[in-house]
Design a protein around this nucleic acid. Structure first.
Lengths: 177, 177
DNA sequence: AGACGTAGCTAACAACGTTAGCCGCGCACT
DNA sequence: AGTGCGCGGCTAACGTTGTTAGCTACGTCT
């Protein structure tokens, strides 16, 4: 359980937590400065005492996802099964589908690299790279597959009756050198 | 070159074309009912004589992408090289990266299936399915890989110095059974 | 001629992100 | 103890967004 405060004041942390709840419960359209302020019992302009703009709040939420995703993947890695990549896929898919709005927020825009905690992006990526025996190209292909599956699944792009477990397994056996 | 009118009036077609130009030239934020009307020399409310809401315009744009993507993939298929899947990947990637805003619009939301022309979704998917020898599971995995690569590439998620050609090739050789 | 549908218009509303400017409380320092 | 200041609220407002209501001019068909 890593520290997610990231140098933010307690009030700012509380705002991020509330924003996260609002996003996850009611979706991206509901994540509004006014609605967020409502939940906190304050008025919208007061939020700007803690964050320069809405984007900064969203970036904080992206950090949260990266942090938790890193933890989920590291935990899967630590389980050290006979098929580490399979374990990672399950963890990735499970986490993403459990937090679809957060996943979309973190994924459907250019990554604000400078605003993210130092090294967090790499930390999140490392379990996958290790499971690929350190091959950069393979790990990127694997990552793309996992992200593609999750993205298509979240947006309901597969036929409603598609057996996605089988699709995951097919990708896994193909990509596991 | 298929008919994209789809039962729409000439004026409505013109609106869709203009919306497409606006989106591709200036991005999703610029695709506004007022800006769209400006380009057409009319006022925003007049657009509602042709489309019930903004969503309907965007759905029409999604149809355009599906149509063109289907054509691109069918053309790649017709080239009948020794490695049909490789040909499809190049076509998919090329088209998507040539129209990133349109691709994002079509991809980053639940698919409005009922509002799409009958059979268009399936038609777009078929070249990939055929290249996978008819295997549903494999074609879904392949599709997820291609979409994931494009999505991550469009959003600048890969390291700036990443050799993405190699990643595509790695995925290709792994997935080409 | 008269009726009607088409396609434009203006005015307006609610909600959004954001800014400016005010105020009150509590802590720190002299 | 008094004083100053900054933190964190507030109201009012601006510009922009999607969208609706209601008016009007024009063309076509009876």
């Amino acid at each position: 359980m890593a520290d997610q405060s990231n140098g933010r004041s307690p009030r700012a942390q509380q705002i991020v937590e509330t924003a996260r709840a609002l996003l996850e419960e009611e979706g991206a359209d509901a994540l509004t400065m006014r609605r967020l302020a409502d939940r906190l019992g304050i008025k919208a302009p007061s939020l700007y005492k803690h964050f320069p703009d809405k984007n900064a709040v969203e970036t904080a939420l992206i950090s949260v996802l990266f942090e938790e995703m890193a933890e989920a993947l590291e935990a899967a890695e630590a389980r050290a099964s006979s098929d580490p990549l399979a374990e990672l896929f399950v963890a990735y898919r499970t986490y993403a589908l459990a937090h679809p709005h957060l996943y979309r927020l973190s994924t459907e825009r250019p990554l604000p690299r400078e605003a993210l905690p130092e090294g967090l992006e790499e930390r999140t990526a490392m379990p996958l790279v290790r499971a690929c025996g350190g091959s950069e190209h393979l790990s990127r292909a694997v990552w793309a597959f996992a992200h593609g599956m999750v993205a298509l699944e979240i947006h309901g792009r597969f036929p409603p009756d598609a057996d996605l477990d089988k699709a995951w397994r097919t990708g896994l056996t193909a990509l596991a050198a």
